[in-house]
Amino acid sequence: MSSVIGIVFIAVGLAFDLFGCIGLVRLPDVYNRLQAATKCVTLGTCSILFGTFLVVGFTSPGIKSLLCIIFLVLTSPVSAHAIARSAHRSGIKLWDGSVVDRYAEDKEGEI
């Protein structure tokens, strides 16, 4: 029974991974790509790891996959934050259809 639920979790995770990668190809600039890819791929991979834990049970790979979920949830938003900040500081503009950019206004005021 638990293996069937695990298979369902793995299938949901695969669908979210695929949507995240389509977003990585379709969206127009760095920040939008970063949003779609980080959210979808992080939750998709965590769902795959949780499905692996449900299939194999409390054995050594199951415990390791639970640890790996904690590592991923803690580290992937931090790396997305670092990429967004350094991209904005190195001068990459937002997409032309963007509405507002308070960060550039404030940095203009400082310098």
């Binding site: 127009p28 920040y31 939008n32 259809g97 963007s98 509405v99 507002v100 950019d101 308070r102 960060y103």
Partner: peptide, 8 residues
């Protein structure tokens, strides 16, 4: 592609 991005 219904997006309307910006930094607030």
């Amino acid at each position: 592609l219904p997006i309307n991005p910006g930094i607030v």
